[in-house]
């Protein structure tokens, strides 16, 4: 899936991945790829601005540690993010169900 197509859903996907536990940026991206069977393919660097934006909005919190001599930033879902995720999941579910119903539906009968 192209970066453009993914862009509108990236925040929801990131919150979902982080709802399973704290992760650093690289792990988040790898998890995103793995769960989507490599379908979600976008420049990895673009995920960081999204993570920062979500942290600024209060949905995520982060802390620094030192691993193998390198500084590492780990993100976790904040309470506000948990609430937003539940809300967005519900909205997405409603939306995707509606789209599915439309796609499955019979064509409008045409007059002979």
């Amino acid at each position: 899936m192209s970066g453009e197509a993914l862009k509108g859903h990236l925040d929801l996907l990131l919150l979902t991945v982080l709802s399973d536990g704290a992760m650093h940026g690289y792990a988040v991206i790898e998890e995103l790829k793995e769960r989507s069977d490599e379908v979600f393919d976008l420049p990895e660097g673009t995920v960081y601005p999204a993570l920062h934006r979500l942290e600024k909005a209060g949905f995520l919190a982060s802390e620094w540690s030192v691993v193998s001599g390198r500084r590492r930033r780990t993100y976790r879902l904040a309470d506000k993010g948990r609430g937003a995720l539940a809300e967005q999941r519900h909205a997405w579910s409603e939306f995707s169900d509606a789209v599915s119903r439309v796609l499955r539906g019979s064509p409008w009968p045409t007059t002979p």
Binding site: Y26, G45, Y48, R70
Partner: peptide, 14 residues
Amino acid sequence: DDVIAEIEDHLISA
């Protein structure tokens, strides 16, 4: 510095 440190960690990990 924080952003660069974060990117560096990603690039080396990858």
